[in-house]
Amino acid sequence: MGILSWFKYRSPFGIAFMLQRITGVVLLLYLCLHLVYLTSLQSKELYESLTSLTVSKQFFVFDSLLILCGIFHGLNGLRIVVHELGFAHEKRKPILAVLVVLTILGWVLGSYILYTALGD
């Protein structure tokens, strides 16, 4: 099965592990893209042509998905830090439930902020 076996687990915690891994890699790829993108700051024309393309409603879906990845990975990361220090293993179910709620709230809020900033 190889590394696909990382994605076959069915307890909610196993799913959180799998998503942490996937979102971590997504964020890593985005980081690399982001650094390349920022090269454009060397030239005003290049920067403005790029931002007029990417800071737009067409790109909103991707931005919003990126926000979801970031918020889930960050909050779930905090949860992992707590458990990896040996704390709160017995309360892991309610903690994960709170995390799911916070992730959705953060996602909606972040997407809303971005969407309003995009204007018309």
Binding site: Y47, T51, I113
Partner: peptide, 13 residues
Amino acid sequence: FLTTHANHEMLSY
């Protein structure tokens, strides 16, 4: 995120 996306004036060159 907030400094760059609270409004997009922030993203002007």
